[in-house]
Nucleic acid binder design. Sequence first.
DNA 1: CGAAGAATTGAGTCCTATCAAATGCCGTGG
DNA 2: CCACGGCATTTGATAGGACTCAATTCTTCG
Lengths: 240, 240
Amino acid sequence: MDHPPPHGCNGVRIRQDCLSCETRLFSVCAALSDHDLALLQDLASPAQFAPRDPLLVQGQPAPSVYNITSGTVRLYTLLPDGRRQIVGFALPGDFIGLSMRESASLCADAIDPVEACAFARLPYSALVDAKPALLRRLHEQASHELTLAQEQMMLLGRRTAEEKIVCFLLRMQQRWARIGRSSVTVQLPMGRQDIADFLGLTIETVSRTLTRLSRDRVILLVPDGVRLLNGDHLASVAAG
Amino acid sequence: MDHPPPHGCNGVRIRQDCLSCETRLFSVCAALSDHDLALLQDLASPAQFAPRDPLLVQGQPAPSVYNITSGTVRLYTLLPDGRRQIVGFALPGDFIGLSMRESASLCADAIDPVEACAFARLPYSALVDAKPALLRRLHEQASHELTLAQEQMMLLGRRTAEEKIVCFLLRMQQRWARIGRSSVTVQLPMGRQDIADFLGLTIETVSRTLTRLSRDRVILLVPDGVRLLNGDHLASVAAG
DNA sequence: CGAAGAATTGAGTCCTATCAAATGCCGTGG
DNA sequence: CCACGGCATTTGATAGGACTCAATTCTTCG
């Protein structure tokens, strides 16, 4: 893929171009015919977020749902005393706002520069009502997320720190692979504290575990990511 | 509610009677009109499970989906080395098999004697395709489960043993209340080991924490449940 | 009554958290 | 170009909460 980013012809304002969207095939949009996609495109407005910009705030009304087209978003909940649990990272192709409820049950904010398709909730909801295929796709997506959430519960409740880290690295590798960015070097756009809050650990334990794996030549720490050196060992740890 | 359990007239074989089903209003069936409910009823076959009987086995084909009408089911995943994480308990009105995939990603088995409506997956799937209202309801249900799963992640990743226990008790109270069994005495049909595997603790820690709460007059341990004595204290612990 | 399983209680250990300090990284501005 | 400040990360020392192992008590039920 080396064509330029999508832009409008004839000098019109730059708009989404769903048909050529790189994330289309991975996203909920894959459920739609070209015709229905055009309807969806009319509802979409491009949105950009700088690092730390919020997409959703826990408890506050969520005017839009989003389809991430580039960048990484963290989804998390907070306790009053400040403890944070990250419940997921949204990558390109991921949909934010599956439940379509009026107010957000989560916080979501950009980790790095994020681009997304925003859909106003009401017209989007109407389109979902009119297109069962889209609803079906949303439900499949929600079911998939539920399965992931259940895996994460096993990880949080029953796995050791090392297993948590290893599972996390392997899952990130799989997720990048699924959207066509397969590589031995796993990109980690999030910081150590984010990883800790995702895995139910402290930042120190994350750091120590990564350095130990690195010393044991199982991984190699590189800027903004890790290279997986000993896949067999990693897989056997993850298997439990 | 003191009428006898549903049974057929004229000596016909006992069947589900969805219209008078006590769990109808809480379950996915609430999405359907009386007419559509009749279609659903034709697909339903009553099923009973003794304690420890499996409803689903991880990785194996799931021929049916279930609507629980009485009793309690535990849903869990296993690691090869035997570690177990319970991801939820299904109570009357709960639906098992939301994802409608062919093979189960979870194990599910009865904790106490369970009665359920079983629906063969294929005809059920066909009905869902024909009735968007039913699909919509399934999606709402899945979204709700996703929200619960995210709360559970916070609990597993960031809460102390005492907070886990207290949150669990309060949530069980709410769940019983929602299906019309509100009471200061919270029924706990599952054993201590089940609670431990749900909360990411050991059975000893569960037991010790419950006895400590009991000594502090916050709860009272009774057979098959607990009575909540100091709701304010419980709520403040749960708030974090 | 006795056996088997479930739950509780106790003693000691270990993994991870906590507290604290040092190091590395990167953009800014002199 | 390099010194500087701020932030993220790493490393170290210590403590503590939950786990492990083991024994006892309580239930249930034939």
